[in-house]
């Protein structure tokens, strides 16, 4: 067998002598191709500069407006009709409470859905249809989810404009993101690990719980955190739900009315025409919100880097 292969290999070598090649490299145009490469490099770097530049201008303006207003007192005081006495204590707490609803609901529902779709559902047409539509749901405008939340949670279940209603609405909004991220994380778990588990007599669930989920967890968490940080910044669904801004009381339970950081920004910006200083309050709130989002995204990146594939 080996001898035959050697003979065959020799034959192939002999027929590929240099003079038998039927093409020649065109070297005359090389400087033109190098110039074209430079053109594209400059073009693409300009696009990057534009995007980052715009972002920088935005951040700079917000920062300038917020200087002097973003004090420790701003974080601990509640709303007031006097701008210099107003704070966002209630809005911060509202956002925290919202997250207490959104995080468990989206992670549990999202991961369970992804496990079903990836591990249990047969790979037929119906499953493919559901998969496609979950991806589509992720691109439905958030105001539409607000209307859904208003109809189902606000009116039908009588939750009104409570934290629970807002949290469930935001959960629905970001659920597709979590599902898609979790699906991708599950799909990235190599088949040979599953096989190793099945071959030991493990059931499907045992395999998912002990082998697949631990390997997929960093991906699931990263997706989850990014989804939650999207939920934190959402305004439209809460506006539709009728979340008021003039809440003087601090919410104490999930059934209470509340206000949240993006809502606060929205109403203060609207009322800038009445009171000039509201623009500064809004800017200071934006800075707080951005810092929170930045920290959450950093955590997601750290998790992703720490648990990078080892096999």
């Amino acid at each position: 067998m080996e001898n035959q292969m050697k003979i065959a290999a020799k034959g192939a070598m002999a027929s590929r002598k240099r003079e038998n090649l039927h093409f020649s490299i065109n070297r005359s145009n090389i400087s033109k191709r190098v110039r074209r490469n430079n053109f594209y490099r400059v073009l693409f770097s300009l696009s990057t500069v534009f995007a980052i530049g715009m972002l920088m201008i935005l951040l700079y303006q917000v920062w300038i407006d917020s200087v002097g207003w973003l004090t420790p007192g701003f974080l601990t005081r509640n709303l007031s009709i006097f701008p210099e006495k107003a704070g966002i204590h209630g809005a911060i707490l509202g956002t925290v409470y919202l997250m207490l609803v959104v995080i468990p609901v989206t992670i549990l529902l999202g991961v369970a859905t992804a496990i079903y779709l990836e591990e249990y559902a047969t790979k037929g047409r119906i499953a493919a249809f559901i998969r496609t539509n979950i991806t589509n749901l992720a691109s439905v405008p958030s105001v539409i989810f607000g209307l859904l939340g208003l109809a189902v949670f606000g009116r039908l279940l009588g939750l009104g404009s409570s934290i629970l209603a807002g949290g469930l609405t935001l959960s629905l909004l970001v659920l597709p993101i979590v599902v898609v991220a979790a699906q991708e994380a599950l799909r990235a778990v190599p088949g040979f690990l599953r096989e190793g588990s099945y071959a030991m007599g493990a059931s499907k669930w045992t395999t998912i719980w002990r082998v697949v989920l631990p390997v997929a967890l960093p991906g699931v968490l990263t997706g989850g955190i990014l989804a939650v940080s999207r939920a934190i910044g959402e305004t439209a669904p809460l506006v539709v739900l009728g979340i008021p801004t003039l809440i003087m009381r601090i919410p104490k339970s999930l059934g209470d009315d509340f206000t949240a950081l993006p809502i606060q920004i929205y109403y203060w910006t609207l009322d800038t025409v009445l009171t000039r200083e509201y623009a500064n309050l809004a800017a200071a709130t934006i800075v707080v919100l951005l810092i929170v989002l930045f920290m959450m995204n950093s955590v997601a990146i750290v998790i992703r880097n720490k648990y990078q594939r080892r096999f």
Partner: peptide, 28 residues
């Protein structure tokens, strides 16, 4: 599941779980 506890399998490519040596042996 029961059949596979009596009939073990070793694969073409080594496929330990991304766990400790201890956890790998005691998985079953």
């Amino acid at each position: 599941e029961e059949l596979r506890t009596k009939v073990g399998m070793v694969f073409q490519k080594p496929n330990p779980f991304p766990k400790s040596i201890y956890e790998n042996v005691l998985y079953g």
